[in-house]
């Protein structure tokens, strides 16, 4: 049985004009020890899907469908039930380590409070564990770090502390929402290596959310590409990177910087994603897609299976016979 089974999960947010769909019938599974990458532009519903898995959506958000974690249905849980899951079984690392650590509470307090709550251990024991965790994420001088405050650390160090904090109760699933985006490239690489190592040591499953396919390629096993709240392509990371079938995935890959490219400008996808609540019926990407045909819109796009574990939603399929891309970079 998969650790996480998401089926037709939809999230609707209340706006001034009514409910708008932020996540549209998302389905995926995640096994123990697997890393799933969710890719997409801002507003594609990546963060919303992660927050749904922690029950941290804004008030009045409507969630339908199913998300089974370890056999337990997450959709429709009460706040009390959520508190048992959050931090203990599913933990999250947020995008901006500069704002997600509390400025006025010592690292000690922030590292140990949920251990004490969830694991029922004493503060003393929690402190010992906290120190070990900090060593685990390569924080020099963990004793001193524990009695310090967030402002005394750099961004990369803060994110390492956030990761240590997330792992404190030995969760089975880690949601990493752009954990390296706010950091320098060199620091970013360190965080990715760290997550990869922790996955193996802690048998951790990770959902890694980012807009940067370059980052995803180096760490994830599986990939889910979202556009305007909907899945456009999913499958094994290696397969998708070699042979992306959806024009949007293709566009994302083309927009990555190529070191040996003769072109001076980065390629970008023209236009903007549709506004929240204004997604068309059919392919939401059609109006920005250079391969779009009339049949792309007006009715639901059916999934096409390129292989058992490679699925995409494009009626035109312009890349069916193109050669494989070179992977790596």
């Amino acid at each position: 049985m998969a650790l996480l089974e998401v089926n037709n999960l939809s999230v609707q947010l209340q706006t001034k004009t009514g409910f708008a769909t932020a996540v549209d019938r998302l389905s995926f599974t995640l096994d123990t020890g697997e890393i799933l990458g969710i890719a997409g532009e801002s507003g594609s519903g990546k963060t919303m899907s992660a927050l749904t898995l922690l029950g941290l959506l804004p008030q009045h958000a409507k969630v339908t469908g199913s998300a089974k974690f370890d056999g337990q249905e997450l959709v429709g849980m009460t706040n009390k039930q959520w508190q048992q899951i959050r931090g203990k079984n599913i933990a999250m690392v947020f995008q901006d380590p500069m704002t997600s650590l509390h400025p006025m509470l010592s690292i000690k307090t922030q590292m140990t409070e949920h251990m004490i709550t969830h694991l029922g251990i004493t503060e003393k024991q929690a402190l010992v564990d906290a120190e070990e965790l900090l060593i685990d994420v390569r924080i020099p001088d963990p004793k001193k770090a524990l009695s310090s405050y967030a402002s005394q650390f750099s961004g990369g160090m803060r994110q390492r502390i956030c990761i240590a904090m997330a792992l404190a109760c030995k969760p089975k699933l880690l949601l990493a929402d752009e954990p390296s985006t706010a950091l320098d490239v060199t620091v970013q690489a360190g965080i990715l290596t760290l997550l990869n190592r922790l996955r193996e040591e802690h048998h951790l499953s990770i959902i890694f959310i980012t807009h940067d396919l370059g980052v995803l390629s180096s760490i994830t096993d599986k990939l889910l590409v979202l556009y305007a709240g909907r899945e456009v392509e999913s499958g094994l990371t290696s397969t998708i990177l070699q042979h992306p079938r959806h024009p949007y995935t293709q566009g994302l890959l083309d927009s990555l910087p190529q070191p040996d490219s003769k072109e001076k400008l980065l390629k970008s996808i023209a236009g903007f994603p549709p506004e929240l609540g204004k997604q068309p019926i059919g392919c939401a990407f059609a109006e920005r897609c250079k391969f779009a045909e009339p049949r792309c819109t007006g009715h639901e796009v059916q999934p096409t299976f390129a292989a058992d574990d490679h699925k995409f939603y494009c009626a035109v399929d312009p890349f069916a016979f193109t050669e494989s891309r070179e992977v790596g970079a």
Binding site: L54, L56, N79, W82, Q83, Q84, I85, R86, G87, K88, A91, M92, F94, D96, T99, S100, L101, H102, P103, L105, T109, E113, H114, T117, H118, C162, M165, C169
Partner: peptide, 22 residues
């Protein structure tokens, strides 16, 4: 509205503790 409050909730702390401490 601060990120660190959301982060505290994500740790599964009881809401009373989130309010009191964070």
């Amino acid at each position: 509205n601060n990120d660190y409050v959301r982060a505290a909730r994500a740790k599964g702390l009881p809401e009373s503790l989130v309010i009191r401490r964070h």
